[in-house]
Nucleic acid binder design. Structure first.
Ligand SMILES: NC(=O)c1ccc[n+]([C@@H]2O[C@H](COP(=O)([O-])OP(=O)(O)OC[C@H]3O[C@@H](n4cnc5c(N)ncnc54)[C@H](O)[C@@H]3O)[C@@H](O)[C@H]2O)c1
Ligand SMILES: NC(=O)c1ccc[n+]([C@@H]2O[C@H](COP(=O)([O-])OP(=O)(O)OC[C@H]3O[C@@H](n4cnc5c(N)ncnc54)[C@H](O)[C@@H]3O)[C@@H](O)[C@H]2O)c1
Lengths: 238, 238
DNA sequence: TAAGCCATGTGAAATGGTTCACAGAAGAGC
DNA sequence: GCTCTTCTGTGAACCATTTCACATGGCTTA
């Protein structure tokens, strides 16, 4: 959930010609959904995957084009092969080690979550300035003082960091991170980070998400009417 | 951070003719940014606000059109007036009380966050099935057993809920919520919720956000342009 | 009062993303 | 083997969002 949208997203380099962020996000969801499938489902149709992911069949097929699809009519896609192809598309290049900065309420919650449920990337190190936390082990991960950031990031070839800091510290720490070689930041602080070219920021703004929800999820029955009216025009293919 | 994108978002009713979700999200960010401005800044230019929010001047002006702008050349926008206009656009919508379901690791973190830093909407009640948690007060908010959901939601006119539950329980609880009258759900579980028409779901998918980051934040210096991606897509019911 | 400057508000163009619609391929039934 | 059905892969149409570009008008300076 983010919002920042500077005027980038240009060339995206030669490396990934025109793969849209939306597609990448959905591929991540497809990957997770496929991995949770029981072994009794070796094949899947685009419309089935779409239903499971809240997407549309055409959208799924279009997304799968970027991984070089090999679906077969009258059978669909081979689940195992699909997972492999998605992984290949995501593979390589950046290291899989992630740094987390800020072991407060949110930070600890994220450690618990990512350690437990997520396997492509994992938190390799936690940093905090609070001496009560540093040099301890938080949810099984070593928490370092900020002074060690550069060293640990370099030693472990970390290129991605998560910011879970008080708003006022976020910009300052973002600068330390990029100076240490971080090229991707997942930012939970509701501030707009200014980072050098070449660094990628993804913001997760929970307050803005709630506002959006409040705006669109109006109460009352005229809402209901609206949806019903929409459905007359809503084909919802397959 | 989400992904789901059924074919809704049509007319959006007569009430909000064609206000895009992106615009609403950015208005929320503008609102917060303006509110944090020192009193010594009574006026602001679109390009200044854009810089603070990581947007562009044209984007800001375009967004502000939906609130009926009253900027003045050579002075910019009156900050107080802008906040008031944004509030008016958001106002009258749904009740400002939010229910949180699931007082686990993430749930408690969210309570702390929303109580402390966010003022437009606030958590009015927490629900959990764990008897150790219910009937207690968590971070200053009463935690009810699930059986009281319908009663409390009705009594307090709650229309928005946050789901912070184990993945396996999310769908089942989403159904209880809509049955109780909830029309908007902020969903942190990485599952695609199926909800009746008229219910709006906003997903926050942290794993997908990290994958997206890993994909675009490749290491190396051939990436010249900063990449910023966005956002959440919302889904109304089927 | 006039001239220069600069920012707003907004059509219009550009870009990005989704859906449509159909050709072609593969299995099922006969 | 032929036909029927149903799905994939994809150009093209469609829709949404962003950016451009400029007419307009307020403020300042002289
Ligand atoms: N708690 C949530 O659920 C939640 C949700 C959304 C967004 N956020 C945002 O996430 C951020 C963190 O929230 P939180 O609730 O975890 O805050 P917190 O105060 O609980 O934790 C912040 C941590 O950062 C550490 N810290 C502070 N300054 C630092 C610095 N300069 N360098 C290194 N470490 C430093 C502190 O020691 C503390 O451990 C905030 O910006 C908040 O707005 C939080
Ligand atoms: N922890 C995080 O930072 C984080 C981040 C992103 C997403 N998530 C997702 O958020 C969800 C919750 O994560 P968590 O770490 O807080 O889990 P958790 O296990 O710590 O908490 C879950 C809570 O839900 C309650 N619960 C379980 N089933 C219930 C039911 N049927 N009705 C009512 N309450 C019920 C449990 O008693 C528990 O208190 C998960 O889907 C997780 O994938 C968590």
């Amino acid at each position: 959930m983010t919002f920042i949208t500077r005027n980038q997203h240009k060339a995206q380099g030669q490396r990934n010609p025109g793969v849209s962020p939306k597609t990448i996000e959905r591929l991540s969801v497809y990957r997770r959904t496929l991995a949770n499938l029981p072994a009794s489902t070796p094949f899947i149709y685009s419309h089935e995957l779409a239903a499971m992911c809240g997407s549309s069949a055409a959208q799924v097929r279009r997304d799968l084009m970027v991984i070089g699809t090999a679906g077969c009519p009258s059978r669909g896609y081979a689940v195992a092969e699909l997972i492999e192809l998605i992984d290949k598309r995501f593979a390589g290049i950046s290291s899989h080690a992630v740094a987390l900065v800020g072991a407060g309420t949110l930070g600890r919650s994220l450690i618990a979550y990512l350690q437990r449920r997520y396997h492509r990337l994992s938190i390799a190190a936690v940093f905090d300035k609070d001496p009560d936390l540093t040099s301890r082990v938080v949810y099984g991960i070593r928490c370092y003082p900020m002074g060690e950031l550069r060293r640990v990031v370099e030693e472990q070839s970390i290129s991605i960091a998560v910011i879970a800091l008080p708003d006022a510290s976020a910009q300052e720490v973002a600068e330390q991170l990029t100076a240490a070689g971080i090229t991707g930041i997942l930012n939970f602080a509701p501030v707009s980070l200014r980072v050098p070219s070449g660094t990628c920021v993804v913001d997760i703004d929970i307050a803005a998400a709630l506002d959006k929800l409040a705006f669109f999820a109006r109460t009352g029955r005229d809402q209901y009417l609206r949806e019903v009216m929409d459905e007359s025009r809503d084909k919802h293919g397959h």
